[in-house]
Write a protein that binds this DNA or RNA. Sequence first.
DNA 1: AATGAATGAGGGTTCATTCAT
DNA 2: GATGAATGAACCCTCATTCAT
Lengths: 196, 196, 196, 196
Amino acid sequence: MTDSTVSRAGAASAKRRRLTAAAAEVVHRQGAERTTIADIARAAGVPVGNVYYYFKTKDELVAAALDEHARHLAELTGRLERLPDPRERLKGLVETWIGQRDVAARWGCPTGTLAAELDKRGEGGLDAEAGRVIRLLLDWAERQFRELGLPEPDGLALTLVSAYQGMSLLANALRDPEIMKREGDRLLGWLGSLPG
Amino acid sequence: MTDSTVSRAGAASAKRRRLTAAAAEVVHRQGAERTTIADIARAAGVPVGNVYYYFKTKDELVAAALDEHARHLAELTGRLERLPDPRERLKGLVETWIGQRDVAARWGCPTGTLAAELDKRGEGGLDAEAGRVIRLLLDWAERQFRELGLPEPDGLALTLVSAYQGMSLLANALRDPEIMKREGDRLLGWLGSLPG
Amino acid sequence: MTDSTVSRAGAASAKRRRLTAAAAEVVHRQGAERTTIADIARAAGVPVGNVYYYFKTKDELVAAALDEHARHLAELTGRLERLPDPRERLKGLVETWIGQRDVAARWGCPTGTLAAELDKRGEGGLDAEAGRVIRLLLDWAERQFRELGLPEPDGLALTLVSAYQGMSLLANALRDPEIMKREGDRLLGWLGSLPG
Amino acid sequence: MTDSTVSRAGAASAKRRRLTAAAAEVVHRQGAERTTIADIARAAGVPVGNVYYYFKTKDELVAAALDEHARHLAELTGRLERLPDPRERLKGLVETWIGQRDVAARWGCPTGTLAAELDKRGEGGLDAEAGRVIRLLLDWAERQFRELGLPEPDGLALTLVSAYQGMSLLANALRDPEIMKREGDRLLGWLGSLPG
DNA sequence: AATGAATGAGGGTTCATTCAT
DNA sequence: GATGAATGAACCCTCATTCAT
């Protein structure tokens, strides 16, 4: 494999990555339905006609955006996992949410809003895809609660993630980041009050 | 006023009501963006061109759908208000949510999903409209908590409504009505555990 | 014929007249193509559905607007005819044009702009109608020049009316009423310089 | 630049030019309001949807039609400018008008009729655009009169252009090309009679 | 792979005209 | 005659996707 091959392949992958990142961001801000392939191409600095070499359909681009959010989630939980105490990990998660309150108030949770939008479609299976990303978070939280030795860790995870989605939606609908802070603090208190 | 006058005016209003109801339902199922005027017209049994006699733009129809949801909410809280105990009213609210779990699992909360969608639009002011409907629920809940003599009734309302939006979104994203039941029961327990 | 019959018939005619006047004015301002039946109905204070009892088609309304302008022209020439000297009549005509310079600069000559618009239509014969109104003016001017004993009175009339249409169009296109004044004064000088 | 590059770019520009030419012609014949994008597309041999690749709105197409007329005017005056005597240039202009009498009698002056139509619109600024093209002619004529050393060259230009617009409108309204000939000849005589 | 251009199926909206009462 | 409501044919414009080079 020559250098130029490498660099060409590298450039191609870079384009794919740029498109994916652009899709994640633009779709988060505009919603999947209102986002145009041209919007994403422009944001990625890629000519429109070229997009189809990397993604056969618009739906594939939306799926890539979802994957991108899953990757962000994995990074976050990966960082949190370095903390020895599961309770601290969960608190760290909530603190991250609070830290992103301005984005949440403006555009909502990327995965949550996308899930809500995709669930309105009967076809394509993209809706299930969104659910899968949310379940990643759910599973991770459940593991933490289980490590803490708490009963019904899945129920606790459900409560935590549900609270996150709810407060993001309200913060977004009311355009008020303080909602994230207020409910986030309550969650921190709740986590602290749990036995184990 | 003659009979024919009544029937004429009545028929006209009936059509408007039919369109509003159809808009509320179809938009709930398909989302505002994916819903065409023709979809709503068909559901209401009205020729497409005639829709514009009652609603000048698609946005007005979406606004009417939102109003319809606000009206449903008002009916519900109106019924609950007949209960003497505020705590029972709040429990009744949660029980209603649980009772609608199948719809929520399939399409989400009508107002919440619409709010999430409309918030992606910069223009038109419809986004603020959605927030207003959510605040109606928030305010009603706050009044109940206040009547119970609890501190920070607004925070409690936020927690309650936030939980509702969160569990609706998760139930929808995971297509699992049991999530509504599980979190709903937890909320019932929480309401029962509150002092006052 | 009873009184009420009279008054009803009278009211009906009044409506027709109101519609005609409204058509003349609104069409002058908006052009025939951009003018809606509803626009005219509103301006006349007549319900839309009722218009069709007086005018079977939109074209008939436009024709009525043309007639109205012909009537205005007849009134004007009728007034001028009271002057004993044909040259003074012609000067009076030009002075009237100058006096209406602001309207001309904003909307052009009612008949001229309408003629230009209607001439773009292949069908309906409305185009010929517009020409007929212009010829009324042409013929009147020709009669004045003939009474003055000038040779080629038809050519002189053509020059006069042509100048009027030209200056109206330029004043309108450049939105400058002073063009009417300037060219109008030149015409007055020209009329004064003619022998006879 | 390779041949294929040329042909590709050339083809694209050719299409734009074809659309512009078609717009100029069809709008001249039908008027801006009665001309549909489909009409222009058909005349240019371009699929409707493709038009929007070259012109974002119908108004842009109309503006392009106006530009086309401005270009025709520039060509004409450019040719006339080769004549050494300004008076001959002006006479050449009038003779050109006379030579186009059949077109003028059928459709009027392209710029004049378009200006009249666009001036009925309050919005968009296209109306001002039409005025600008007319002023090009006005300015050119003024320069010729000035070169002749005549007083008030702007007034003379106004008279000349005004006469042109007026005779075009009358010829069109009365569907009589001879009007162009008759008034044109008079203008030629007038130009010849001027001192300088 | 790369890219500007092409294609065509809708979607929202307007409006002359007609209908029912 | 009077009137609000109904109807449907266009029209402008958007956009996912495909094509030609």
